[in-house]
Structure formats: structure tokens, C-alpha cells
């Protein structure tokens, strides 16, 4: 008796679903996205005009469930608006880093030789400069805005995916089907697009999830170092660091809600990434 054949996609889905942490992460992410993007439709607040006479109201006062901040913005509504910014920057910067890193690593590993040596030394150099230091410098060069932050965070985060992809590419380029395509007169870039990247897609996707998590943390640090997006725009990192300025006055509602939302969001992406890794990596699946 043979077991019914199951496609690898089915098995992956099964492995992902068996990983409870990954399911928790996925559920968490759905809730967070709903909170940030659907929340403002239900709970309408003004996040543009300051109301100084209603500043720093305690939670529950004057119909503000989570109180107001030092400029009189409703904290609950601001968490939603800020979350949109944080999520959009995190997702876009993570995607940008993944695309650049994948392309860079795939080309370096596939062609090898001098090109590989030079391209990977550039990656080594990039890794030797901590991303935060580059972000601090970048902020003195350009005024932070959402597209700028996406670009800058993407540009300091593509190095790890480049290394991972290069290793994959190096291993895949000597496979028979890649050699065959080359013998048949196919171009190198064609082989990379048709064979190398699709075969490494598991590694790419798993890493992309972690990239998003890291990008959201980076936005937070950028805000803490005083380089965030200027108001009235908001992101969780900015709210958290803004709240910390009043930490000794006991304004806990300005600190813990954005802090917890950052932790939950980064956790959600990390859980999902961990589950995806189990799903894509047969080795892990057998041992779990």
C-alpha cells in the first residue's frame, strides 16, 4: 500500500498549519492589520489638528479610551494611523531589501569568479557598517518621509538576503537543468530568472518575513534617535519615543500601547517566518 501522493505545496501548508506558533502569528497579523486599516473607519478621530487644551488626558477622560498625548491627539486613533505607517514602511522596506538582495546574490553566485569576489566584498563592507550608523548619517542628508524611510531602510537591509541568495545560487548553478539551459544557448540572466531564483524561493520568502520584522524595528530605532517622520504623521516608534520623553511624569498610556503593538507586530512576523522555515525546510519538518 502506498500513501496517496501529496504535492509539496500541500505538505508545506500542512507543516505550516501544524506549527501553532505560526498560526498565532498569522492570526495576530490579521488582527493588527484590521486594527490599523479598518479601525479608523469605525473609530474616527482627527489626527491632523492639535487640541492643546485637551492634552495629556487620562485614559477614559472626555471620551478618549486611551487618553490623549501631549498635543491633544487621541491615542487610540493615533495608534491606528501610526500603525499604518509602521506596517507600510516595514513591508515595503522588507520587500525592497529582499528584491535587491536576491538579485545581487543570485548574479554573484551564478557568475562566480571576479564578479562574485567584487560583489561579495561590497556586501562584506556594507555589513561592516552597522545599519543604524548609516541611518543616522542618512537622516542628516535627507528629510525623513515615508518613501525616504522605505528607500533608506531597504538600502541598508539587503545584505543578509544577498549572502543567503548567493549561497543558494552557487549551489544551484551546477544542477543539470541549469547546465542544460546554458548548453541550449540560454542567457545567464534567463537561467537566473527561470531556475535559480524560483528554486531558492523558500529561502527568499522565509528571509523576507524576517526582513519585514527587522525593518519595523529599524523604523522604531530611527524614531528613537530623533530622525523619525515629523508630525502630524506618526509611527509607533515615534509615539513610543515621544512617550518616553514624559516617562518620569507617569504618562504610561503614551508608552505601553505603542510599545506593545511594536512587540506584537514584530513577533507576528517572526512567528510566521519561523513557521515558513519549518514548512520549506524538509530537515526541520522531520525533526520537529
Amino acid at each position: 500500500m502506498t500513501a496517496p501522493a501529496r504535492s509539496s505545496a500541500d505538505e508545506r501548508l500542512l507543516a505550516f498549519r501544524r506549527n501553532k506558533l505560526a498560526l498565532v502569528g498569522a492570526a495576530l497579523l490579521v488582527l493588527l492589520v484590521a486594527f490599523c486599516f479598518l479601525g479608523p473607519l469605525v473609530y474616527v478621530t482627527d489626527q491632523v489638528h492639535t487640541v492643546l487644551e485637551a492634552a495629556r488626558l487620562l485614559p477614559g477622560e472626555q471620551g478618549h479610551p486611551l487618553g490623549t498625548d501631549d498635543l491633544g491627539y487621541d491615542v487610540l486613533g493615533r495608534l491606528m494611523a501610526a500603525g499604518q505607517t509602521s506596517l507600510v514602511i516595514g513591508l515595503a522596506a522588507g520587500a525592497l531589501a529582499t528584491v535587491i538582495g536576491t538579485a545581487w546574490g543570485a548574479v554573484a553566485g551564478f557568475y562566480g569568479g571576479w564578479l562574485d569576489a567584487v560583489m561579495m566584498r561590497v556586501v562584506d563592507a556594507g555589513i561592516a557598517i552597522p545599519g543604524l550608523f548609516l541611518l543616522v548619517v542618512a537622516a542628516t542628508l535627507v528629510t525623513p518621509s515615508v518613501p525616504v524611510l522605505i528607500l533608506v531602510i531597504g538600502l541598508v537591509s539587503w545584505l543578509v538576503p544577498a549572502r543567503l541568495m548567493r549561497a543558494e545560487s552557487l549551489a544551484l548553478r551546477s544542477r543539470a537543468y541549469v547546465e542544460a539551459m546554458r548548453l541550449a544557448g540560454g542567457t545567464g540572466l534567463g537561467a537566473i530568472r527561470r531556475h535559480i531564483v524560483p528554486n531558492a524561493i523558500g529561502t527568499v520568502i522565509v528571509n523576507a518575513t524576517f526582513q519585514v520584522a527587522d525593518a519595523i524595528l529599524l523604523v522604531t530605532y530611527v524614531s528613537f534617535l530623533g530622525l523619525g517622520i515629523p508630525p502630524p504623521a506618526a509611527n509607533w516608534g515615534g509615539m513610543l519615543s515621544g512617550g518616553l520623553a514624559y516617562s518620569y511624569d507617569g504618562y504610561w498610556w503614551l508608552i505601553f500601547p505603542p510599545g506593545l503593538l511594536i512587540v506584537l507586530t514584530v513577533c507576528a512576523f517572526t512567528f510566521i517566518g519561523d513557521g515558513l522555515r519549518d514548512a520549506f525546510d524538509v530537515r526541520f519538518r522531520e525533526r520537529a
Partner: peptide, 11 residues
Amino acid sequence: NFVLYSTPVFF
């Protein structure tokens, strides 16, 4: 572990 990793250092 995951929570520790996800917490911004300054928080």
C-alpha cells in the same frame, strides 16, 4: 525568546 527579540532595545 521571540518576545525579547521583538522588543525595541530602548523600550
